[in-house]
Design a protein around this nucleic acid. Structure first.
Lengths: 107, 107
DNA sequence: TATGTATATTTGAATATTCTAATATAAGAA
DNA sequence: TTCTTATATTAGAATATTCAAATATACATA
């Protein structure tokens, strides 16, 4: 039950369980961006962005390369986006279900 | 950035970010199980199991029906398993990547 | 070498999640 | 009605995560 693999899987999903980290992955959909560019897209503090990038790096969702003083991040495994899209199908249906319940409560 | 939708998506993944909750979904793969049956499969305390079931219910990953005093849980959206399998592909690759790095460090 | 720019790391406080233990509820049986 | 079984909820302590601020590092250039 609490085998290392189960715990690892949980870490995998936990890593995705933050709006800033999801926004980072979304921003990198069309290709690499530098930290400064990411900061502009996602409106967030430098150090906070860096901390979240560290988590995504640790879990290998992103990798980075340096070009002079600029660091570019990208998502190497394109299947991550297939996965995120499939997730979207599911949570859209889950939201619709909640909506239907609401409609029954407040017709 | 911190729009309600972004936050909702994050909640979706957070809900999956716990080994007990992943084990519950795994156990329900072949069909419905009662709480007592789940308790036997996943070796965990009654109240803990119940609390995790509550989170999965809140996020509509599972639903339940009562039959006399027994409550059966099941996963209504089968695409959840497609999704979990796709996740597995990804984290297996991520683990392999870590393995390769280790091999370079300790040949 | 000193300065500036880009990014990362560290530390502690604030916040959120999980666990444990106790209690509550719901339904059937005696 | 009382007891038992199955499950849920609550409250508070333990633990983990996040954020903000300060500091560190890495590189380029003057």
């Amino acid at each position: 039950m609490n085998s290392p693999l189960h715990l690892y899987k949980a870490e995998f999903f936990k890593t995705l369980g933050h709006s800033v980290r999801l926004a980072i992955l979304d921003a990198l959909r069309e290709g690499p961006l530098s930290v400064t560019e990411l900061q502009a897209v996602i409106q967030t503090e430098q150090s906070i962005l860096s901390q979240h990038l560290a988590k995504l790096r640790a879990m290998k969702f992103v990798s980075s390369r340096r070009e002079k003083t600029t660091i570019y991040y990208h998502v190497h495994d394109r299947e991550v986006y297939q996965f995120l899209d499939l997730a979207k199908n599911i949570y859209v249906r889950q939201l619709q279900q909640s909506q239907e319940m609401l409609n029954e409560l407040i017709p």
